[in-house]
Amino acid sequence: MRLWSLEPALLDRAALVACWREALLAQKVLAGNTRGYTRHPQLERFRECADPLDAIGYFLADLQREATARGYRFDITRILRPSAANPHIAVATGQLAYERDWLRAKVSVRDPAWLDRLAGEPRCGTTFVLVEGPIAAWERVTPL
């Protein structure tokens, strides 16, 4: 499961679609509607919010807006709380850089033309607020 902290506009088609699918699964987990993935580390930051379902709802709505801007049809009715307030989840600069590098490694194989969009400083999605710091403790770092 990869719930990207990166701005959705930075995600290539495959990453955007996968993130949507995985965030819908995360929503199901947070709502208590599945027994799988309940201990997935990527869910920690959503669980730490005052209302985890609002937090994942806002995250999903952000993905849906980007998909719509690209002409994709992500069904907003699948979001339990599409009008949730922004949870402003902190994401560290180290985490964001790690995710950008991870995405660059994936994109270099499947869509090299997309690499130019990943140049420069990474930007976080509107669900997140950038703070100085290292890779998150919940991240399972793998060599790129």
Rank of each mutant, 00 (worst) to 15 (best):
W114C: 04
L11G: 04
L3S: 08
P143F: 13
W20S: 01
L144P: 01
A136L: 10
I76D: 05
R65D: 15
A31L: 15
T38C: 08
R117I: 08
K106P: 00
A90L: 11
Q27H: 11
A105C: 07
M1W: 06
R140I: 11
W20D: 08
R78G: 02
L53W: 04
Q42M: 11
A23S: 07
W4P: 02
W114I: 02
V29C: 10
E48P: 01
W20H: 11
L60D: 03
T77A: 10
T77I: 07
Y58E: 06
P134T: 06
R140Q: 13
D62E: 15
L115V: 09
P82R: 04
A14M: 15
I79K: 00
R110F: 07
A61P: 05
W20R: 12
R2A: 01
P87K: 04
A18V: 07
V109A: 06
V131R: 11
P52K: 05
A61G: 07
W114P: 05
A9W: 07
G32T: 06
F46A: 09
V141G: 02
A67E: 03
H40F: 13
Q42A: 14
Y98K: 02
P87V: 07
F74L: 14
R78H: 04
T34Y: 09
I56A: 08
R140P: 00
A31V: 04
F74R: 03
R81H: 13
R21H: 14
Q27D: 03
L25V: 15
A23L: 02
A67T: 03
R123C: 01
R140F: 06
R78A: 13
G125D: 11
E44M: 10
P41G: 00
A23H: 02
R45W: 03
F59S: 01
Y37Q: 08
R73L: 12
G71E: 00
K106L: 10
A31C: 10
N33L: 14
G120P: 05
